[in-house]
Computed example of a mutant assay.
Amino acid sequence: MTPTLVHRYSWPVREAIEHLLDDVVGDCEAWQVRIEGEQLVIDVVGPSEVTFRVGDYEYTVDGREQEPSNGAAKISTAAPEADAAPAEPPRKGGALARQAGIICGEKGFWTFVLKKFGATVSSADEAATWLKAQCGVTSRIDFDHDAGKAANFREIDGAYRLWLDGFD
């Protein structure tokens, strides 16, 4: 059977996107519209003069520095000195930190810790404290940034998964 076109609707692109996104599109330069599965995805491309703030400094999209907004001294954008270290972005947790958080909330993990390691754990916070001490980290974020600590976590997580399947 051949599908039959019953209705066709058409709108000017800008009008349709403004209706869907309200004020978000006010000063944008373009849109990228596509269908992903059952989702209509609209990427709004902003103007090139957009600035963003890092601490007291504002930067344009292309990385040129603007004057600080609070009267602080402007940092030179010239080539960095040899002894000046670039600022590192804040570390964030990823998949391993998320997985560690999930298993620490599982009562089965608490039982596993008792049976396998002899440690009594009765809450997600206690499980997190035990896991961090066992792996030698101060934060679950470290699992995503330190290969050795990640290996420690993966070993415990793997043993827990086997234990859940009935293997000791």
Rank of each mutant, 00 (worst) to 15 (best):
E106K: 08
I102W: 00
G94W: 00
G93A: 05
E81N: 09
S69N: 11
F117A: 02
T129M: 08
E58Y: 11
E126A: 08
I75T: 13
V50T: 07
D43V: 12
P80D: 01
R98E: 09
S123I: 14
L114E: 13
D62F: 04
G46E: 12
A97T: 12
C135D: 01
T60G: 03
E67D: 15
G101N: 05
A85F: 10
G136C: 01
L40E: 07
V54S: 13
E126T: 06
Y59H: 10
E38K: 12
F117Q: 08
E36V: 15
A133C: 01
V121R: 03
T138H: 06
P47D: 06
A84F: 10
C135H: 04
E67R: 15
K115Y: 11
V61S: 05
G108V: 03
L96T: 12
G93N: 04
A128R: 13
I102Y: 01
Q66I: 13
Q66K: 15
G71A: 08
P90S: 06
A97D: 03
P89F: 13
W130T: 06
K92N: 03
A97V: 10
L40S: 10
Q39S: 08
K116Y: 04
G94T: 07
V44Y: 05
S69A: 15
V41Q: 07
Q39L: 10
G136V: 04
A87V: 15
G105Y: 02
A87R: 10
A87I: 14
V121H: 06
V50D: 00
P47V: 04
S48H: 06
V61Q: 02
S69L: 15
K92A: 11
G46F: 06
V113T: 14
A124P: 00
S123V: 13
A127F: 09
A78P: 05
K92M: 13
K115E: 12
C135K: 07
